[in-house]
Design a protein around this nucleic acid. Structure first.
Length: 154
DNA sequence: GCCAACGTTGGC
DNA sequence: GCCAACGTTGGC
């Protein structure tokens, strides 16, 4: 079992949007970065833990706990000419982009980025590294445990 | 295969 | 809106 941090812009799919979706599940469409794609396609398994992160907004931080709820399959938006994620080089026979489904486990009071940076236990977290822009990053089990034990308050 | 130009990310 | 960081593209 692995753990992941997955970024979303709340203007796109916020934690509240996710909670309102059928099965509280969203296809993690639109990833167009090979490293992030490979994490989904090659390493994610059903029930992996996910920290649902709000980025590019007034208060960036962890907004909820989720889980991987499907294995990877071709991202439908790459074939959709009307989508901004359309990829003319992708075909049904050889898709380029894959996504998993992500299902909400629970919303939590937001853990702001500013707070994450205050804990030495988390200083090596990929997402906190200078210059990191990956929208999907693996988490150490120790980081996951620390966050759930010490930073999530009901 | 190099690398400059360009586009995107995302915190602030 | 700014801008640093970094990934991708494409000419050569």
């Amino acid at each position: 079992m692995r753990y992941w941090l997955m970024k979303t812009e709340p203007g796109d799919v916020s934690i509240d949007d996710l909670a309102a979706l059928p099965e509280q599940t969203v296809a993690w469409y639109g990833v167009r970065n090979y490293q992030s794609r490979n994490f989904m396609r090659d390493q994610m398994r059903i029930n992996d833990g996910v920290l649902y992160y709000h980025s590019n907004c007034a208060m960036p931080g962890i907004a909820g706990i989720a889980r991987v709820s499907s294995s990877a399959y071709p991202d439908a938006t790459q074939f959709d000419r009307t989508s901004k994620y359309f990829d003319p080089k992708a075909t049904q026979e050889t898709p380029r982009w894959f996504n998993v489904d992500v299902q909400l486990v629970r919303r939590i009071p937001l853990i702001p980025l500013k707070e994450l940076r205050q804990h030495p236990e988390l200083e090596r977290m990929r997402t906190l590294q200078r210059g990191n822009r990956l929208s999907i990053t693996p988490l150490d089990p120790a980081e996951w445990n620390f966050i759930l034990k010490h930073l999530v308050h009901d």
